[in-house]
Simulated assay, not measured.
Amino acid sequence: MNRKFIFILVLSFCVINNTSAQEFGKLPPFTKWYQNPLGVSPVSLHTANGIILPAVAAGAVLIFTSVDSTLTHKLSIYGDFGYTKGYYGSFSDLFHSNVGINFMLRKYMSVGIEITQAHVSDNINNTSGFGIRPFFRFYPYYRDSFKFFFSSGVGLIYFADNFPKPSGFFGDMREGTRLNGCPKYGIGAEFKIYNSFMFVVGIWHAHFSNGNYYGSERNPGHDSNGFSVGLTYFPTNNR
């Protein structure tokens, strides 16, 4: 992998993550490192770290690295489904499925967009939502038969009912809204299984909130961790 790419990516992460942490404050004291491994506050995750950080890194890579003329199979189509468990705001079971397209900009970087569906349920919430989420992916390891990636994106999702509803978690009796932002980041891997198909698995951190758009009194938020499995398809003769 291009060393300049690594330097740009790490530098961008450090600068923006430090700025957003100062701006939006610290994590709640009850949050464990494994619950939010990037160490960003919910509002910070929604605004800066969900899409701005990877966009800055991707833009820098495009500017400072050259096009790889040997890169093939740039376009892929995928579908996956998975489960995450809420740990902050609402302790919901979240079942999600996604269908999307992914386009390689460099051998170690891509941009994509997915349609997402989510169903959340617990002793208070029971609702479904549909949304759209642009994302960037970075590939520390990329081969035809195996790919390892980090992915981060954020979009909008609309639920049938207000979400989250008041849970009383640490005395929080706020009620969320139907329209929410839906940041998601995680790591994943793709394994070639047959010709143009790859099996994909991922471990994800998911977040729902309205970013205080309706005021902090309407933004309890939801955070969860979990996994997904799915298939990636590479159309033939795409370069």
Score class of each variant (00 low, 15 high):
residue 33 W to L: 07
residue 39 G to W: 02
residue 33 W to R: 13
residue 21 A to L: 02
residue 29 P to F: 14
residue 36 N to I: 13
residue 39 G to K: 12
residue 30 F to I: 05
residue 18 N to R: 13
residue 6 I to Q: 06
residue 17 N to L: 00
residue 32 K to V: 06
residue 17 N to A: 11
residue 16 I to T: 05
residue 37 P to V: 07
residue 29 P to D: 14
residue 21 A to E: 09
residue 17 N to T: 13
residue 24 F to E: 13
residue 31 T to M: 12
residue 35 Q to G: 06
residue 31 T to Y: 15
residue 22 Q to K: 08
residue 27 L to I: 08
residue 30 F to N: 09
residue 12 S to Y: 00
residue 22 Q to W: 09
residue 20 S to Q: 11
residue 11 L to C: 04
residue 21 A to C: 03
residue 23 E to A: 07
residue 6 I to N: 12
residue 37 P to T: 13
residue 8 I to Q: 06
residue 33 W to N: 05
residue 31 T to V: 15
residue 10 V to Q: 04
residue 10 V to G: 10
residue 13 F to R: 09
residue 25 G to V: 06
residue 17 N to H: 06
residue 12 S to C: 10
residue 23 E to F: 12
residue 24 F to W: 11
residue 21 A to G: 03
residue 6 I to M: 14
residue 28 P to E: 15
residue 15 V to Q: 01
residue 13 F to P: 02
residue 11 L to G: 07
residue 9 L to G: 07
residue 28 P to K: 15
residue 21 A to H: 08
residue 35 Q to R: 03
residue 26 K to V: 06
residue 33 W to S: 15
residue 9 L to E: 03
residue 15 V to I: 13
residue 5 F to P: 00
residue 39 G to E: 13
residue 5 F to V: 05
residue 16 I to A: 08
residue 28 P to H: 14
residue 14 C to P: 00
residue 25 G to R: 09
residue 37 P to Q: 03
residue 15 V to H: 01
residue 20 S to T: 12
residue 39 G to R: 03
residue 10 V to F: 09
residue 25 G to M: 05
residue 19 T to Y: 06
residue 11 L to W: 00
residue 23 E to Q: 14
residue 13 F to Q: 14
residue 23 E to V: 06
residue 14 C to S: 12
residue 11 L to M: 08
residue 38 L to C: 03
residue 27 L to K: 07
residue 26 K to S: 14
residue 13 F to A: 03
residue 26 K to M: 08
residue 9 L to Y: 07
residue 34 Y to K: 05
residue 8 I to Y: 01
residue 10 V to S: 11
residue 33 W to K: 13
residue 7 F to R: 14
residue 32 K to I: 04
